[in-house]
Simulated assay, not measured.
Amino acid sequence: MAKVIIIGAGGVGQVVTHKCAQLPEVFTEIVLASRNEDKCKKIAAQIDTPIRTAQVDADKVPELVALFEREKPFMVINVALPYQDLTIMDACLEAGVHYMDTANYEPLDTAKFEYHWQWAYQEKFEKAGLMALLGSGFDPGATNMFTAYAAKHYFDEIHTLDIIDVNGGNHGYPFATNFNPEINIREVTAECRHWENGEFVETPAMSLHQSFSCPDDVGTFNIYRMYHEELESLTKHFPSLKKAQFWMSFGESYLKHLEVLGNVGMTSIEPINFNGVEIVPIQFLKALLPDPSTLGPRTVGKTCIGCVVKGVKDGKQKSVYVYNIKDHQDCYREVQSQAISYTTGVPAMIGAKMMIEGKWMKEGVWNMEQLDPDPFMDDMNQHGLPWQIIEEPDFNLI
C-alpha cells in the first residue's frame, strides 16, 4: 500500500523494521535510515525482504528534507531520539510527508517529557493536509489504547487510572538499561508527578512504592511511582479522571547502582570540562553501559504491562485491568530483540499500519487515545502482543 522511511537503528528500530517487513502488502517499500548507516545495514541483513538503507543526521532538517524528497515516502516512522522529534516534524511539513513517533519531544538540556512543543504543530499539520501521530509505542501507546478501550467498552465515566509497567526479565548484568540509557535514566531520576483532583502533584523521584503481583505467574515485584508522558495526554483527553498514576518495577541492583551513579554525578545532564574536553556525564555513562540492542540473547523472563481503570457503569462502581504479557526469549526468536524493544516496536508498526490503511488518517496532530482503539487492539492480538482483560481485579493499589 505505501512506502515508509524508518528513522532510527537501535533496538526499537530493529523491531519496527522486522515487523513492517512481515507485512509487504501494507509496507510495500521500506527505507531504514540513521546517522550510522552500518547499523541499518546490519538490521537489513537479518531480514529476507529487501530493505534499503540511508545515512541521515536527524538533527539537520535540510538532510532530512533531501532524503524525504528523494524517496517520496507516504510517512516517516520516527524511532530516533526524542530530542529529534521537532526537526523530523519540520522536515515532514516541508516535504509533505505524514509523521509518527513513539515518544514525545524532550529538549536536550532539560529533562522535561512534555507534549506542548508537539501540540503546537496542530495548525501547521492541519493546513498542510498531513497527520502526525504521537506516542505509538507501548507506554505511551498501547497503554493509551488500553485506557481508551476500557473507557469505550466498560465505563460511562472513568475516575482513576494506574498504569503498571513490570519487567520481570533478567539480562545477567549488574546494571544495564533495556532501552536508551540516557533516556531511561533521565526518566527515572526526574521529579515524580501524578494527577490528582484536577492538577499534577509533584513528589520526589521514586519516593513511593508498593508490591504488585502480576497475573499468570509472572511474579511479584516492587513498583515505584514516577512520571510518564502519557499521563499528560490521558488526563487532558479524559477529563473525568480524578487520579492517574504511573508505576514501574525496579530491582534492588538497578536502584543501588543508580543511587551511587547519581551521588557521584554520573547521571547529570550538565556539561563538564574534562582535560580540556566538554562532556556530558550521562552521555559518557551511556558509552560505558551495554547497548540495549545487544541484550536480546541473554534476557530471560517476561514483561507485564497494563492499566487498572476504575469508574462508573450504569451508576455502579466498576474496575478492569487490561494487560499484555510478553516473553523476552519469544521476542528474540522472532526478531532478535528483547521484549522491551519488541513491545515498543510492534505498536509503532501498528500505528503506521492504521494510518496507511486509512483507519486513523486525520489531518493535524493526534495522541493515540483520540482515535478509535478497536482496530489497533485487534491488530495487537494479530501481530504479537495479545492482551487480556480481568474484570473486578483483586488489587489494593495505593
Rank of each mutant, 00 (worst) to 15 (best):
F200Q: 01
N222C: 12
T177S: 02
H209T: 14
F200C: 13
N184G: 06
N180G: 11
A205L: 12
L208I: 15
F179K: 14
V166M: 05
A190R: 14
D162F: 08
L161E: 10
E191M: 14
I223G: 01
G219S: 11
H171E: 00
T189E: 13
T220V: 01
T203H: 04
H159L: 08
V188A: 15
P204C: 08
F155Q: 05
N180A: 15
D162S: 11
D156I: 10
M206L: 09
I164E: 13
N222E: 14
E202P: 12
R193C: 05
Y154P: 09
L208K: 08
T160R: 07
H159N: 15
E202D: 12
D162P: 06
E199M: 04
I183P: 02
F155V: 04
H171N: 00
P174M: 07
G169P: 00
Q210V: 14
H209G: 07
S207E: 12
I163L: 04
F200T: 05
V201S: 08
H194A: 14
G219M: 09
E199R: 11
H159W: 04
W195A: 01
F175R: 01
G198T: 06
I183M: 10
P181L: 12
E191F: 12
S211I: 13
H194F: 05
W195P: 03
E196K: 05
A151G: 07
E202N: 13
V201C: 08
P181W: 04
D156P: 05
